[in-house]
Protein backbone atom coordinates (compact mmCIF):
# COMPACT_ATOMS: atom_id res chain seq x y z
CA UNK A 1 0.00 0.00 0.00
CA UNK A 2 1.28 3.43 -0.89
CA UNK A 3 2.09 5.82 1.90
CA UNK A 4 0.16 8.45 -0.05
CA UNK A 5 -3.63 8.25 -0.02
CA UNK A 6 -5.60 9.74 -2.87
CA UNK A 7 -8.71 11.42 -1.56
CA UNK A 8 -11.65 12.72 -3.54
CA UNK A 9 -12.76 16.15 -2.38
CA UNK A 10 -16.15 16.01 -0.71
CA UNK A 11 -19.40 17.82 -1.44
CA UNK A 12 -21.26 20.64 0.33
CA UNK A 13 -24.87 20.10 -0.70
CA UNK A 14 -26.49 22.36 1.90
CA UNK A 15 -24.29 25.39 1.29
CA UNK A 16 -24.63 24.84 -2.42
CA UNK A 17 -28.41 24.74 -2.22
CA UNK A 18 -28.55 27.88 -0.07
CA UNK A 19 -26.28 29.82 -2.42
CA UNK A 20 -28.20 28.58 -5.47
CA UNK A 21 -31.55 29.67 -4.00
CA UNK A 22 -30.25 33.13 -3.10
CA UNK A 23 -28.69 33.59 -6.52
CA UNK A 24 -31.99 32.63 -8.11
CA UNK A 25 -33.79 35.11 -5.92
CA UNK A 26 -31.31 37.91 -6.62
CA UNK A 27 -31.50 37.24 -10.35
CA UNK A 28 -35.26 37.57 -10.36
CA UNK A 29 -35.05 40.65 -8.17
CA UNK A 30 -32.73 42.35 -10.67
CA UNK A 31 -35.22 41.56 -13.41
CA UNK A 32 -37.96 43.10 -11.27
CA UNK A 33 -35.94 46.16 -10.24
CA UNK A 34 -35.19 46.91 -13.89
CA UNK A 35 -38.94 47.48 -14.31
CA UNK A 36 -39.66 49.24 -11.02
CA UNK A 37 -36.66 51.48 -10.33
CA UNK A 38 -35.79 54.26 -12.75
CA UNK A 39 -32.13 54.32 -11.77
CA UNK A 40 -31.68 50.59 -12.42
CA UNK A 41 -33.58 51.00 -15.68
CA UNK A 42 -31.23 53.83 -16.71
CA UNK A 43 -28.12 51.81 -15.86
CA UNK A 44 -29.31 48.91 -18.00
CA UNK A 45 -30.25 51.18 -20.89
CA UNK A 46 -26.67 52.39 -21.07
CA UNK A 47 -25.46 48.80 -21.54
CA UNK A 48 -25.45 47.08 -24.96
CA UNK A 49 -28.69 45.53 -26.33
CA UNK A 50 -27.61 41.91 -25.76
CA UNK A 51 -25.57 42.57 -22.61
CA UNK A 52 -25.22 39.56 -20.30
CA UNK A 53 -23.53 39.24 -16.93
CA UNK A 54 -23.08 36.44 -14.43
CA UNK A 55 -22.51 36.22 -10.70
CA UNK A 56 -21.49 33.03 -8.95
CA UNK A 57 -18.89 30.95 -7.16
CA UNK A 58 -15.61 29.44 -8.27
CA UNK A 59 -14.59 26.79 -9.05
CA UNK A 60 -17.82 24.85 -9.69
CA UNK A 61 -20.74 27.23 -9.31
CA UNK A 62 -23.58 27.80 -8.73
CA UNK A 63 -24.10 30.76 -11.06
CA UNK A 64 -26.78 33.25 -11.90
CA UNK A 65 -27.04 34.85 -15.32
CA UNK A 66 -28.93 38.04 -16.14
CA UNK A 67 -29.08 39.61 -19.56
CA UNK A 68 -30.97 41.89 -21.89
CA UNK A 69 -33.05 40.27 -24.59
CA UNK A 70 -34.22 42.80 -27.17
CA UNK A 71 -33.60 45.41 -24.53
CA UNK A 72 -35.67 43.70 -21.82
CA UNK A 73 -33.79 42.62 -18.70
CA UNK A 74 -34.29 38.93 -17.91
CA UNK A 75 -33.05 36.42 -15.39
CA UNK A 76 -31.61 33.68 -17.58
CA UNK A 77 -31.14 30.87 -15.08
CA UNK A 78 -28.09 29.16 -13.67
CA UNK A 79 -25.88 28.89 -16.74
CA UNK A 80 -25.21 31.17 -19.64
CA UNK A 81 -26.37 28.57 -22.20
CA UNK A 82 -23.69 29.47 -24.66
CA UNK A 83 -24.46 33.19 -24.54
CA UNK A 84 -21.34 35.31 -24.42
CA UNK A 85 -21.02 36.85 -20.95
CA UNK A 86 -19.55 40.36 -20.95
CA UNK A 87 -19.10 40.78 -17.22
CA UNK A 88 -18.40 37.99 -14.79
CA UNK A 89 -18.38 38.55 -11.05
CA UNK A 90 -16.78 35.48 -9.52
CA UNK A 91 -16.66 34.81 -5.80
CA UNK A 92 -13.50 32.87 -4.97
CA UNK A 93 -15.20 29.96 -3.21
CA UNK A 94 -18.59 28.52 -2.37
CA UNK A 95 -17.94 29.28 1.29
CA UNK A 96 -17.20 32.92 0.55
CA UNK A 97 -20.42 32.98 -1.49
CA UNK A 98 -22.25 31.66 1.53
CA UNK A 99 -20.71 34.37 3.75
CA UNK A 100 -21.87 37.05 1.35
CA UNK A 101 -25.34 35.71 0.61
CA UNK A 102 -26.06 34.98 4.27
CA UNK A 103 -25.13 38.64 4.96
CA UNK A 104 -22.26 37.73 7.28
CA UNK A 105 -20.02 39.69 4.96
CA UNK A 106 -21.29 42.61 2.89
CA UNK A 107 -20.60 42.88 -0.83
CA UNK A 108 -18.50 45.97 -0.28
CA UNK A 109 -16.48 44.18 2.41
CA UNK A 110 -16.11 41.03 0.30
CA UNK A 111 -14.66 43.17 -2.47
CA UNK A 112 -12.42 44.89 0.01
CA UNK A 113 -11.35 41.51 1.27
CA UNK A 114 -10.33 40.39 -2.14
CA UNK A 115 -12.93 37.64 -2.39
CA UNK A 116 -14.49 38.84 -5.64
CA UNK A 117 -12.89 38.62 -9.07
CA UNK A 118 -14.28 40.97 -11.69
CA UNK A 119 -13.83 40.07 -15.32
CA UNK A 120 -14.87 42.25 -18.21
CA UNK A 121 -14.96 45.91 -19.14
CA UNK A 122 -14.59 47.98 -16.01
CA UNK A 123 -17.31 50.60 -16.74
CA UNK A 124 -19.84 47.81 -17.31
CA UNK A 125 -18.77 45.96 -14.18
CA UNK A 126 -19.21 49.16 -12.19
CA UNK A 127 -22.74 49.56 -13.55
CA UNK A 128 -23.53 46.03 -12.37
CA UNK A 129 -22.18 46.78 -8.90
CA UNK A 130 -24.37 49.91 -8.70
CA UNK A 131 -27.39 47.86 -9.77
CA UNK A 132 -26.66 45.17 -7.17
CA UNK A 133 -26.38 47.86 -4.48
CA UNK A 134 -29.80 49.29 -5.33
CA UNK A 135 -31.38 45.84 -5.42
CA UNK A 136 -29.88 45.07 -2.03
CA UNK A 137 -31.41 48.23 -0.60
CA UNK A 138 -34.84 47.11 -1.87
CA UNK A 139 -34.56 43.50 -0.71
CA UNK A 140 -33.05 43.93 2.73
CA UNK A 141 -34.26 45.64 5.86
CA UNK A 142 -32.33 48.88 6.50
CA UNK A 143 -30.23 47.38 9.28
CA UNK A 144 -28.81 44.66 7.05
CA UNK A 145 -28.73 46.73 3.87
CA UNK A 146 -26.70 49.47 5.52
CA UNK A 147 -24.07 46.81 6.22
CA UNK A 148 -24.25 45.44 2.70
CA UNK A 149 -23.73 48.71 0.85
CA UNK A 150 -21.12 51.37 1.49
CA UNK A 151 -23.58 54.21 1.96
CA UNK A 152 -27.25 53.61 2.67
CA UNK A 153 -29.27 56.05 0.54
CA UNK A 154 -31.02 57.77 3.44
CA UNK A 155 -31.93 60.60 1.02
CA UNK A 156 -34.31 58.37 -0.96
CA UNK A 157 -37.92 59.45 -0.52
CA UNK A 158 -40.18 57.28 1.59
CA UNK A 159 -42.32 56.68 -1.50
CA UNK A 160 -39.41 55.40 -3.57
CA UNK A 161 -38.33 53.04 -0.84
CA UNK A 162 -41.76 51.63 -0.02
CA UNK A 163 -43.16 51.59 -3.53
CA UNK A 164 -39.99 50.13 -4.93
CA UNK A 165 -39.79 47.49 -2.26
CA UNK A 166 -43.36 46.31 -2.82
CA UNK A 167 -42.84 46.30 -6.57
CA UNK A 168 -39.54 44.44 -6.48
CA UNK A 169 -40.80 41.83 -4.01
CA UNK A 170 -44.05 41.13 -5.82
CA UNK A 171 -42.41 40.84 -9.20
CA UNK A 172 -39.56 38.71 -7.83
CA UNK A 173 -41.91 36.22 -6.24
CA UNK A 174 -44.20 36.10 -9.25
CA UNK A 175 -41.30 36.13 -11.68
CA UNK A 176 -42.65 38.98 -13.79
Amino acid sequence: MSIIKDVQSGKKPLKRAYVAIFLWFTGRAIQAAAKVDSEVKKEFEKLPEDFTFSLGCLPCGPWMVVGREKGVVKYLGGDSRGRPVQVRLAIKSLDAGFLILSFQESTALATARNRLITDGEIPQALAIIRILDIVEVYLLPKLIASLAVKRYPSWWSFGRKLGGRIGVYTRTLLGI
Binding site: T111, P123, L126, I129
Partner: peptide
Protein backbone atom coordinates in the same frame (compact mmCIF):
# COMPACT_ATOMS: atom_id res chain seq x y z
CA UNK B 1 -15.01 59.13 -13.22
CA UNK B 2 -18.06 56.87 -12.90
CA UNK B 3 -16.40 54.59 -15.45
CA UNK B 4 -13.20 54.13 -13.43
CA UNK B 5 -12.63 51.13 -11.19
CA UNK B 6 -10.84 52.93 -8.38
CA UNK B 7 -14.20 53.99 -6.91
CA UNK B 8 -14.76 50.42 -5.66
CA UNK B 9 -12.00 50.71 -3.08
Amino acid sequence: ALLDGASIY
